[in-house]
Nucleic acid binder design. Structure first.
Length: 416
RNA sequence: GUGGCCGUAGCUCAGUCUGGUUAGAGCGCCGGGUUGUGGUCCCGGAGGUCGGGGGUUCGAAGCCCCUCGGUCACCCCA
């Protein structure tokens, strides 16, 4: 019989690495909650229609959705992203605006896996509904940036662009479409150009690079309102001292974006998967999902990639797990059994060795456990109702009565 | 979905080109170095259907085909 392995493109995260994931999430939670965002927990799957509205010709919807029919024949989909779910929740519960939420959790896309790209991947992100003040764009962009910086990441670039309002966007799409129609594009891009010319700007094919470099800029086709709005966002970022690059080629993959679009790029990741996260304004999304017109902006960050970038920048590394005591019992094991329980109830972290292994073997285990103290119970201690407390850093050892052990350890741990 | 590279002990890898007795190393793990003491050192040990299946051959980790997985690029995006 063959044994099972995890499916393609998904993976296990084991301890101690899981502690790093939890630390990342809790740091993100802290950053968000200090800015007035509350946590949103939404379902892992939704009616597939929720995601279909993201744009019928985006690959996320047309090719990569993990969709299925449930037992009643309803078409459901594992969420490929969280903005649509958040928008659906917003419409369903009509909370008061501004509605500021953060989230964290797995998303699913049926893609060709490679480093930094998995079929189940973890994102953290925020959404801010009901505000179209340009300073809200600045708050959101800055929050993501500060979070990434707080992890110790240095080698990053913030890219900012605007797609303008729908008037600007369609004017630009027309101009760009005309330009592309007369250019020598790769075969695949010719097709893309017909459906959504903006998306061609994302192409990395060698053949398209020259065409893209010479393409008209979306910034030249903004209405004056859209241009003013972008200027306000930029001056807000300037005021906060956040440096960024204006990237007129930055068009985000999902169709619901309007106005501000941004991306956090890691320069330390050499692969094509170097975008740590991105987001933008999606003022039309709520309406597309059947709600009343509401402004919105948010971002999502890929936790898998963030940790890859942390690896290459050697930051946010796994800290050693610390343990207060490790119990070594070379008698009948009764002391290990009761002591570990007693210490844990008193708030002292305690681990122990199993089986009747030699003192030497148990001391090795104690050392490996990173415990500060080893509690040793041998025949002498058992006879006298004591326990030997060995400081594993200084190697100093004292014998303490079992009745006084909790108090003794508490005071010594407090002194550290 | 398309193409390139890769898959040997828990981990990192040698061995594959030039098929040939019991498949190796380092780290890790387990045990020992005499009465009950970890980290260093010394000695010993366990652990592998060579990703899986089929084929060629007297003989396959090695050659061929298929398949699964990883990785890189396109694509897509976080």
């Amino acid at each position: 019989m063959s044994s099972f392995k995890s499916p393609r493109g998904v993976r296990d995260i084991l301890p101690p690495e899981t502690a790093r994931w939890r630390a990342l999430e809790s740091q993100f939670a802290g950053v968000c909650e200090r800015a007035g965002y509350g946590e949103l927990v939404s379902p892992m799957f939704e009616d597939a229609g929720v995601f279909a509205r993201l744009g019928e010709d985006t690959a996320v919807v047309s090719k990569e959705m993990y969709d299925f029919f449930d037992k009643k024949g309803r078409r459901m989909a594992l969420r490929p992203e969280l903005t649509a779910s958040a928008a659906r929740a917003f419409i369903e519960h009509h909370p008061e605006v501004p509605w500021k939420v953060w989230y964290s959790g797995p998303q699913f896309r049926y893609e060709q896996p490679q480093a930094g790209r998995y079929r189940q991947f973890m994102q953290v992100g925020i959404e801010l509904f009901g505000v179209d003040d340009p300073h809200s764009d600045v708050e959101v962009i800055a929050l993501g940036w500060e979070f990434l910086r707080s992890l110790g990441l240095q080698d990053m670039t913030l890219l900012v662009n605007t797609l303008g309002d729908s008037e600007s966007r369609s004017a630009y799409a027309g101009v760009l479409g005309d330009y592309l129609a007369e250019s020598e594009l790769s075969e695949a891009s010719v097709e893309t150009a017909l459906k959504n010319p903006l998306r061609v700007l994302d192409s990395k094919r060698e053949q398209d690079q020259q065409v893209i470099a010479g393409a008209p800029s979306c910034l030249d086709h903004l209405t004056s309102e859209a241009a003013d709005r972008f200027a306000a966002v930029r001056s807000g970022l300037d005021a906060l001292g956040i440096s960024y690059e204006v990237s007129p080629r930055l068009v985000r993959g999902l169709d619901y974006y309007t106005h501000t679009a941004f991306e956090y790029v890691s320069n330390s990741l050499t692969s094509a998967q170097n975008a740590l996260g991105g987001g933008g304004r999606y003022d039309g999304l709520i309406e597309a999902l059947g709600g009343t017109s509401t402004a919105g902006i948010g971002f999502a960050l890929g936790a898998d990639r963030i940790l890859l970038a942390c690896d290459t920048e050697e930051t946010f590394l796994l800290s050693e797990t610390l343990l207060d005591v490790f119990i070594v019992d070379i008698t009948d094991g009764q002391a290990a059994l009761t002591l570990s329980q007693e210490l844990r109830s008193a708030g002292i972290s305690a681990d122990r060795a199993w089986g009747s292994r030699s003192l030497k073997a148990q001391m090795k285990a104690a050392n490996r456990s990173n415990a500060r103290f080893a509690l040793i119970v041998g025949t002498d201690e058992q006879a006298s109702g004591t326990v030997s407390v060995k400081d594993l850093e200084t190697s100093q050892q004292t014998q303490i009565s079992q009745d006084a052990i909790v108090e003794h350890l508490q005071s010594r741990l407090k002194q550290l």
